[in-house]
């Protein structure tokens, strides 16, 4: 029976927290790129694309992230590919993030007054030009606070990767809790580490949003 000091527990949890952060960044960046592509496709006023992407968003927002993880984990295996929890977790979280971000951003684009589209169209700008020069710069300003806020959701979402065996903070917490027989302490630490990562981001998102509202008035 190995004796764990408090420092051993904390150090191991912090080491595992690196993987929480790495997975979050992959999902956030991958989901952001994919979400942007989906957004542009959706703004192209193609009814079919709009419907398909709308369905995609509904699907990911209307089902549990845990199920999405399971489906990718077991779904990739159906192709005869040997899946690792890594690949499944990255893919599931990326898809999940893209669905949420594309919907958040669509709301921001819609918040840009119609007159801006009409004014830029009447200046003979192409669709791409309207989007990149007129609409997106304005939408970007209001998109920043909710996007930063959603990063917190992604970080918390990575905790579910533990269920398919990805060793990040939560999974490491479970393993250490079993080894030390100190579940209260270990899970308390796990929660505090998540809090230490997420709370500052929440604060930033909140202050950005307040600044934005002050700016609008």
């Amino acid at each position: 029976m190995v004796d764990f000091t408090l420092w051993d527990i904390l150090r191991n949890l912090l080491l595992a927290a690196r993987w929480t952060i790495v997975l979050s960044l992959i999902a956030f960046i991958g989901g952001g790129v994919m979400g942007l592509v989906l957004l542009v496709l959706r703004l192209g006023r193609n009814r079919f694309a709009d419907m398909v992407i709308g369905g995609y968003v509904q699907l990911f927002q209307g089902t549990p992230l845990l199920m999405q993880l399971f489906l990718l984990y077991f779904g990739i295996a159906l192709f005869g590919v040997d899946t690792s929890p890594w690949v499944a977790a990255c893919m599931a979280l990326t898809l999940y993030t893209s669905a949420y971000l594309t919907e958040i951003w669509r709301g921001c684009v819609e918040a840009v007054p119609r007159g801006q589209w009409e004014a830029s169209a009447s200046l003979a700008l192409s669709f791409g030009q309207q989007l990149s020069h007129i609409i997106l710069p304005q939408a970007l300003k209001i998109a920043v606070p909710p996007t930063v806020g959603f990063l917190v959701q992604v970080i918390k979402g990575t905790a579910l990767a533990s269920v398919i065996g990805f060793v990040e903070l939560t999974k490491a917490g479970g393993m250490i809790a079993n080894a030390t027989y100190e579940p209260l302490l270990v899970y308390g630490f796990v929660a505090l580490i998540y809090f230490a990562i997420c709370f500052p981001i929440s604060l930033v998102a909140g202050s950005l949003e307040r600044k934005l509202h002050v700016g609008q008035r």
Binding site: K156, A159, A177, E182, P183, L185, Y187, Y194, C198
Partner: peptide
């Protein structure tokens, strides 16, 4: 509010189910 909103639900659940019996 801030404690709950900035930690994952699964950790809250495990803390309650696996952690509290230790107390």
């Amino acid at each position: 509010v801030e404690l709950i909103r900035n930690t994952p639900f699964i950790v809250q659940l495990f803390f309650i189910f696996f952690g509290l019996p230790a107390a």
